[in-house]
């Protein structure tokens, strides 16, 4: 977007809106037809789409194969606050994350939409029976998820670089979600913090190489010991 000379804030907004639309479109075109098939089909489908998009990006001449830096207005600025030196870049990440978390928490806790989404996530068929428009809801969920992922991408871009294989960073998000327990926003935050702390501590105290795997070791242990995560609900299916 900034490529075309848009001002920063406008391009951020249009990126978010564009990604939300794209997510909904994707749901409409490919996810909805396989509604009613096992979750694994969706996983394979999204892997396939990921492959396709990565391939497509590399086909755009001049953009695809290079790495780019995302120029942001707050790049390389420093705040000095009572003896603390704070990097604005990181402060922006923290601030946006907390606002986003609060918004999502409110959405899932209090709004009809959020509660309906939770219901559909637990049992689609039962949600149908209760009159929840599961198909429409799926579209909204995909749009929302795409927009949130776009925010993450925008926050990450100035710190790393923009390139075609950025997507693999997203795999790091899963340990956080597992440790915290899916379906629990506070869990996701605590999980993310925990993973981050474990990663940096093991990078400091343990030999080289443990840093990258520490998160995954934590996940494996977590899944063996407490599969529902720290904050996940304990539910048991009854026949």
């Amino acid at each position: 977007m900034t490529f075309f000379g848009f001002p920063y804030w406008l391009s951020v907004l249009s990126t978010l809106a564009g990604m939300a639309l794209f997510g909904m479109l994707l749901e409409r075109l490919v996810i909805r037809p396989i509604l009613g098939q096992p979750a694994f089909s969706v996983v394979m489908l999204t892997i396939g789409i990921g492959y396709m998009m990565r391939g497509l990006i590399t086909m755009i001449p001049g953009i695809g194969t290079e790495t780019h830096a995302l120029p942001v207005p707050y790049k390389d600025q420093i705040w000095k606050l009572a003896g603390l030196v704070l990097n604005v870049e990181q402060m922006v990440v923290i601030a946006v994350t907390s606002i986003l978390c609060a918004l999502l928490y409110l959405l899932f806790r209090y709004s009809k939409l959020g509660i309906a989404m939770q219901a559909a996530s637990q049992n689609q068929l039962a949600a149908y029976y209760m009159g929840i428009p599961v198909r429409k809801l799926n579209g909204v969920a995909w749009g929302l998820a795409s927009a949130v992922a776009a925010v993450a991408g925008l926050l990450l871009a100035p710190i790393t670089f923009v390139h075609a294989n950025m997507g693999f960073i997203g795999l790091k998000a899963m340990p956080a979600a597992v440790v915290g327990g899916f379906g629990s926003l506070p869990g996701a935050i605590v999980g993310g913090l925990l993973i981050g702390i474990v990663e940096s501590l093991s990078g400091f105290y343990l030999p080289d190489g443990f840093k990258d795997t520490a998160a995954y070791v934590v996940v494996l242990i977590m899944l063996v010991v407490k599969p529902n995560g720290l904050f996940g609900e304990k539910l048991r299916k009854k026949v």
Partner: peptide, 9 residues
């Protein structure tokens, strides 16, 4: 068709 249920259960 089998409708998706949470793996959490």
């Amino acid at each position: 068709k089998s409708f998706q249920k949470s793996d959490r259960l």
